[in-house]
């Protein structure tokens, strides 16, 4: 079984947690997410121009860069995480330019050596897969793609082709942050996507509370939390771990138990 298969087991939904590398005490923050019950970690690679992100994650990117975070640091954080947590899925998420700067093979090799399971490259459309996809697949790393409310049935096969690990359904046509999609539309879209693929479908954007997470967990294979965690790091800096652990515990319980109590 791969780590993704362990995370996305058939009988319950998985909790996917995003934080930005180099923002606060990343090792301690990551440990807190795992202790709280996260099944998959998305570690954000900071970028100067996070075009698809709202104010909270933009600011996290800039805080990290201002603290001097380099690509080598992010890879080291990933490697250290893998040593401490051999069983938790780890995904690097970010923008294309920092990933391809030294060549896709270099990045894929470094990520594989660090024990990374998957990569989400926000601005690498499937149409430009050649820039990273082949290098990742050659090293056994899953290219994880995004589907959105604008990804129609005609386009979906294109998005799915060459993607693996899981599919990330971005429930809102917009940037990361506070907006939320109606649960009805999420349910419909997840069902639509699942007609085209056996990959687990994780849903994110705008999920902040255990109630929202539970509602999504009833209809999807995974729930992604990002800005709500970033907000805690923004507020508490190096003192974020306790509060992160607390929030993630309540989210994990909601997500993992969602299918036990019939909706």
């Amino acid at each position: 079984m791969t780590r993704f298969q362990t995370a996305f087991t058939a009988n319950r939904s998985a909790l996917v947690c995003f934080i930005t590398a180099g923002d606060g005490d990343t090792a301690a923050n990551l440990d807190a997410l795992v202790e709280g019950g996260a099944d998959v970690i998305e570690l954000g690679m900071p970028f100067t121009d996070p075009m698809a992100d709202g104010p909270a994650i933009q600011a996290a990117n800039l805080r990290s860069l201002a603290a001097g975070t380099k690509t080598a640091d992010v890879l080291r954080m990933a490697e250290d995480f893998r040593e401490r947590h051999p069983d938790i899925s780890l995904v690097l998420m970010g923008y294309a330019n920092p990933m391809v700067r030294r060549g896709p093979e270099w990045f894929a090799d470094a990520a594989a050596k660090a024990g990374v399971d998957g990569v989400i490259c926000v601005d690498l459309a499937p149409e430009e897969d050649q820039d990273l996809g082949p290098a990742l697949r050659a090293k056994g790393i899953c290219p994880i793609r995004l589907a959105t409310p604008t990804t129609d049935a005609k386009r979906l096969p294109r998005v799915l082709d060459g993607s693996s690990g899981f599919l990330y359904y971005v429930s809102v046509a917009g940037i990361t942050g506070k907006q939320q999609a109606a649960i009805g539309s999420i349910e419909e879209n997840v069902a639509r996507i699942k007609q085209h693929t056996d990959l687990p479908v994780a849903v994110g954007f705008g999920v902040r509370t255990p109630d929202q997470a539970a509602a999504i967990a009833r209809v999807a294979d995974g729930v992604v939390i990002g800005s709500a965690l970033i907000d805690i790091v923004a507020e508490l800096g190096n003192h974020a771990p306790d509060k992160l652990r607390e929030l993630v515990s309540s989210l994990a319980k909601a997500v993992h138990d969602a299918r036990k109590d019939p909706a």
Binding site: A52, V122, L124, A125, R145, A147, T148, T150
Partner: peptide, 8 residues
């Protein structure tokens, strides 16, 4: 090279 939302 754009986010999926914009591709269509």
């Amino acid at each position: 090279y754009v986010a999926e939302t914009l591709m269509p």
